[in-house]
C-alpha cells in the first residue's frame, strides 16, 4: 500500500466535568477518546464503528481539529495539525473536509444553496464571483443535481438532496480526506443507497480518502476497506473488512456482528446477546472496559487493560483471550472457518 496520508498517534480527549462546588476544578473527567492510533492510506476508506458513546464522533472532530485534543498527534501529509498556529491550520483545513449526519441541521436555512457551496471558496479567498458561480454549478452537477438549483433555499430540497449539497460543499476545496460522520443514518433506505453510491463514485473520480463513521455495520462493510471498532474511547479491533467480518478476534466485535438483524426470514442466527448497555465513560470499568458485558471475561480482564496485538494480515485486536492457548472464541464458527470447512 502507498504512504499513509493521515497518521494518528495516541489521540486522547478528556472532557472535564463541571464540579458541583463552584470555583473548584472537578477532578472527574470523561475519557471520550483514550489513546487512539491509526493510519489512513491514500484512496482508501477507513470505517469506524461503535455504539453511541464510544467516542467515534469526538474522534472525527479531533482529527480535523474542531476540538483540541488533550494529548496525541494528527499528522496530515507529514505535518502535525495539533499545536499548529491558527493561520496555518486554516490552510490545512482545505485538505480535510467533513460531511455531517443531519442533512436538515447542517445547512444554514437562511442561505441559498449557491451561497452555501461557495462559502468554503469565499472563506479561503479562492476565485472571484464568476469563477465561484461556475464552480458551484459544476459541483452541483457532480453530485447529481442541476446547476440551476443554486438559487434555491435548503428547505426546498429533500433529505437525500440536502446530503448531496453537503457533499458538494465538502468537495469545493478539492480535499484529500473527507470525514463522513454518519452521513446516511438519517436517510431512508432507498435514498441511503443513492448517497452511498454517490460517495463511492466520487471516491473513484477524485481519488478521495474517507474516514467513514457509522453505527450501521452493513453500511460500513459495504463502504470500507479497513475497519476500526471502538468501545468506550478505545479501538478494540482493527483490520481489513474481510478480517473483521469473517475472522474477528474480539468478543465485542463478534457480538456486534451477531446483532445485525436477519437478512431473510429463513436465516437462523447464532446470537451473542450482550447483557446491559455501554457503561458510562465517566467511571469506566477497570481493566478491559468490556469485561462487565463480556461472556468470556476472566480474572485478568478486571485488572489489566489489554493492548492491541497484531494477529497477522494487518489485523490488530486487544483481548486477553489472545494470550490463552485454547482461546474459547476460536471454538465459535466464523464465516472464514465455515468456508474452510466447506473446502475440506
Amino acid at each position: 500500500m502507498t504512504e499513509a496520508i493521515l497518521k494518528v498517534r495516541n489521540l486522547t480527549k478528556h472532557f472535564h466535568l463541571d464540579s458541583p462546588i463552584p470555583f473548584k476544578k472537578s477532578d472527574q473527567s470523561v475519557k471520550a477518546v483514550d489513546g487512539v492510533s491509526f493510519d489512513v492510506f491514500q484512496g482508501e476508506t477507513l470505517g469506524v464503528v461503535g455504539e453511541s458513546g464510544c467516542g467515534k464522533s469526538t474522534m472525527a472532530r479531533l482529527v480535523n481539529q474542531l476540538i483540541a485534543p488533550t494529548k496525541g498527534t494528527v499528522e496530515l501529509n507529514g505535518e502535525n495539525l495539533v499545536d499548529m498556529n491558527k493561520e496555518r491550520l486554516r490552510v490545512f483545513r482545505k485538505t480535510i473536509q467533513m460531511v455531517f449526519q443531519d442533512p436538515f441541521a447542517s445547512l444554514d436555512p437562511r442561505k441559498t444553496v449557491g451561497e452555501l457551496i461557495a462559502e468554503p471558496l469565499v472563506i479561503h479567498k479562492i476565485g472571484n464571483k464568476t469563477s465561484r458561480k461556475e464552480r458551484v454549478k459544476e459541483l452541483l452537477e457532480v453530485v447529481g443535481l442541476r446547476g440551476s438549483h443554486s438559487g434555491r433555499y435548503p428547505h426546498e430540497f429533500s433529505g437525500g438532496q440536502r446530503q448531496r449539497i453537503n457533499i458538494a460543499r465538502a468537495l469545493a476545496l478539492n480535499p484529500d480526506v473527507i470525514i463522513c460522520d454518519e452521513p446516511v443514518s438519517a436517510l431512508d433506505v432507498s435514498v441511503q443507497a443513492q448517497v452511498i453510491n454517490l460517495l463511492k463514485k466520487l471516491q473513484k473520480d477524485f481519488n478521495l480518502t474517507y474516514i467513514f463513521i457509522s453505527h450501521d455495520l452493513n453500511v460500513v462493510r459495504y463502504m470500507c476497506d479497513r475497519i476500526a471498532v471502538m468501545y468506550l474511547g478505545k479501538i478494540v479491533e482493527m483490520g481489513t473488512y474481510k478480517e473483521i467480518y469473517e475472522d474477528s478476534k474480539h468478543p465485542y466485535t463478534r457480538a456486534l456482528l451477531s446483532s445485525i438483524p436477519k437478512e431473510s426470514p429463513n436465516e437462523v442466527k447464532e446470537r451473542i446477546i450482550l447483557s446491559g448497555s455501554v457503561p458510562s465513560p465517566i467511571n469506566p470499568p477497570s481493566g478491559c472496559h468490556f469485561h462487565e458485558r463480556c461472556p468470556f471475561a476472566m480474572e485478568i480482564c478486571k485488572i489489566k487493560s489489554p493492548k492491541l496485538i497484531d494477529v497477522g494480515n494487518g489485523h490488530q485486536s486487544s483481548c486477553h483471550l489472545l494470550e490463552l492457548e485454547n482461546n474459547p472464541l476460536e471454538a465459535i464458527p466464523t464465516k472464514k472457518k465455515e468456508e474452510e470447512l466447506k473446502c475440506h
Binding site: V191, N218, R221
Partner: peptide, 22 residues
C-alpha cells in the same frame, strides 16, 4: 426496497441498486 437494503450478501464491488427520486 429489498434491493436497496445493504445486506451481507451485497458485494462491495457492485453498485447498490436504488429507487430514483424521493
Amino acid at each position: 426496497l429489498l434491493d436497496s437494503q445493504i445486506t451481507e450478501s451485497v458485494s462491495s464491488e457492485e453498485e447498490l441498486s436504488t429507487i430514483p427520486g424521493s
